[in-house]
């Protein structure tokens, strides 16, 4: 039953993504991108990953607000839709090749719910005892794999530093 719901949601996500690509109005394509994100969060929730679902919902709201604010005043320049044959054909062939390779690679993946890494059962068995955190995701993020979180925090810090430095109002008089 859950699988059927997930497949239906994925089909609607693909449709919304197509609408976002083909929409004439910039605002409507932003809204349909938001629909893709919210459906993705429902899929995460059905796959029993509530942490990721929460983050997906909130980030989607924030990016929607930023994108709508950015696009609401922008004029759209209409471009004549000339689809040349050869670039389109090459693009389609490449997409087909990519799809074939991806389907080959998907066959090699383990089945859903089965793990390959050998540390995963250790985390599941000893996570509560060794870190004292009842939420296993937090114990992995902030204890076993804290280096990853440090790197992610550094990336965010650097990005915000760049934005603030480039867009500050007053330059130094030099």
């Amino acid at each position: 039953m859950v699988h059927v719901i997930i497949y239906i949601l994925i089909i609607f996500m693909l449709l919304a993504a197509l609408v976002a690509l083909e929409a004439k109005n910039l605002l409507s394509s932003v809204v349909s991108i938001g629909a893709v994100g919210f459906m993705l969060s429902v899929v995460f929730l059905l796959l029993r990953a509530p942490d990721i679902a929460i983050i997906q919902v909130i980030i989607e709201i924030l990016t929607l607000v930023i994108l709508i604010r950015a696009t609401i005043a922008v004029d759209v320049h209409l471009v004549k839709n000339i689809r040349q044959f050869f670039p389109f054909a090459i693009c389609m062939v490449l997409l087909l090749l990519l799809f074939m390779f991806a389907s080959k690679a998907m066959d090699l993946l383990p089945e859903f719910g089965n793990y390959l890494s050998e540390v995963a059962p250790h985390y599941l068995a000893n996570g509560l005892k060794e870190t004292g955190s009842a939420n296993i995701v937090t114990s992995v993020i902030l204890d076993y794999r804290a280096y990853d979180t440090l790197g992610e925090a550094t990336v965010l810090f650097t990005a915000i530093l760049g934005a603030v430095v480039l867009l500050r109002r007053k330059a130094k008089n030099d």
Binding site: P50, D51, A53, I54, I55, I58, I59, L62, G132, S133, A134, N135, V137, T138, S139, I141, L142
Partner: peptide
């Protein structure tokens, strides 16, 4: 965040 789903990133956002 250490008891229920969520954590620093989600709450901060």
């Amino acid at each position: 965040g250490h008891l229920t789903p969520g954590g620093g990133f989600a709450g901060g956002v």
